[in-house]
Amino acid sequence: CVAQFRDHGYIPSTQARASLAVGQDTMETIAERVGTPTTGGVIRGQSYYYVASRFRHYGLLEPEEVQRQVLVLDFDSAGILRNIELLALEDGRVVELERRVTDDNLSDVSFLAQLVGGIGRFEASDFVGSE
C-alpha cells in the first residue's frame, strides 16, 4: 500500500530564517515578521521554539514522525535575540511516557444511563429487515 505524509507545525522558510539578526531582532519584531512561535519555554519571555514535523502514515502502523525541525531562538533578559539553533529529529530523545494519570474524579457515563436513553427510538431498518 501507499504511505501518506502529513505535515504539522510551522517553521519559517530558509529566507526568513536568514533575515534573523542576533543582537538586533527582538521578540516582537521576530513574531511580527516570521509569525508567532509554535511554543515557548517553561518560563515565559526567554525563548521561541518553532517546530515543524512530517508524519508518515502507512497502513495499520502507528503514524511515525519521520522528519522534524526545531528552530530555537534564545533571548536575553532585555528580549534581544541572543542565539539561533536548528535541531533535527535526531536531537530529540526517545522518552517512555508515564502511564499513570491524575484522577479527575469524574464518573464516566454509566452503561445503564445510555441503555435507557435508547428505549423507544426507531429507524426504518427496525421494520424492514435487511438480509
Binding site: 519555554g41 536531537d91 530529540g92 530523545r93
Partner: peptide, 29 residues
C-alpha cells in the same frame, strides 16, 4: 492537583523535542 503531573509531562515533552535545559527547568520547579 494537576500541576505536578503537568510539570512532569513538560519534562517528557521537552526531552522528546531535544530541549534538555527546559526539561531540567521543569524538573527543578
Amino acid at each position: 492537583s494537576h500541576t505536578p503531573e503537568a510539570l512532569h509531562r513538560l519534562v517528557e515533552a521537552y526531552l522528546a523535542l531535544g530541549l534538555p535545559e527546559e526539561a531540567q527547568t521543569a524538573g527543578a520547579i
